[in-house]
Amino acid sequence: MPNVTFFISAEKMPSDENLSELTEQCTRLCTEILKAKLENVHVIYVAVCHGRGHPAFAEIKYRLEPFRTKHVMDSFMKKLDEVIKCNAGITARIRCFGYGPTEIHALN
């Protein structure tokens, strides 16, 4: 963890090159701001049939840690918003969900 999932309107899906750069920058934000280990960062893109609202939705699920304060998460979201706009040319709705260790059950 963190798991970053981008749900992007199929019509607005960026090029592979832009997605690659977005992945690198998003990974950097997770390792530098959220202090995640590289092997724990997952970035996924899902093309969706857009119905209403923003053309993209970014959902970040992360493990609660004392150092991931509101200030840290606000900084992370602000910078993530910038890299999404830069690499995808769209404004995404961004939502972060923190989970405590007793709420996480995982394999692999």
Rank of each mutant, 00 (worst) to 15 (best):
E39D: 13
K37Y: 09
C30N: 02
C26S: 14
Y62E: 01
T27H: 13
F67L: 09
H42I: 13
L29V: 04
L64V: 12
L38Y: 07
K61S: 14
Q25V: 02
K61T: 08
I44Q: 14
Q25D: 11
Q25N: 12
A47M: 00
E65Q: 15
K70W: 03
E32C: 11
Y62I: 04
A56G: 07
E32K: 14
V43A: 01
K35F: 08
L64M: 14
V72Y: 05
E65L: 14
A58F: 02
F76N: 03
T27Q: 09
I44P: 03
A47D: 05
H71S: 15
F76G: 00
D74P: 03
A56E: 00
P55T: 00
R28V: 08
H50G: 09
Y62W: 11
L64S: 13
P55E: 02
I60E: 04
C30H: 01
R68F: 02
L38K: 13
H50L: 11
C26T: 15
E32V: 11
T27N: 11
F67W: 10
K70L: 10
V43Q: 00
I60P: 03
V41C: 04
H54K: 15
Y62A: 04
N40S: 13
V48T: 15
G53L: 02
I60G: 00
L29K: 04
Y45S: 04
A47Y: 01
L64R: 14
R28Y: 09
E59T: 07
R52Q: 13
V46W: 08
F57K: 01
L64Q: 14
C30V: 03
G51D: 08
L29R: 06
I33E: 07
C26I: 03
F76V: 04
H54M: 12
I33A: 05
Y62C: 05
T31R: 06
C26A: 12
A58I: 07
I44S: 14
V41S: 01
K35E: 15
F76E: 01
P66K: 10
K37P: 08
V41M: 04
F67H: 15
T23G: 10
A58D: 03
R52S: 13
K61F: 10
K70M: 06
P66S: 12
P66M: 07
F57S: 05
A36T: 06
T69E: 05
G51F: 08
Y45V: 00
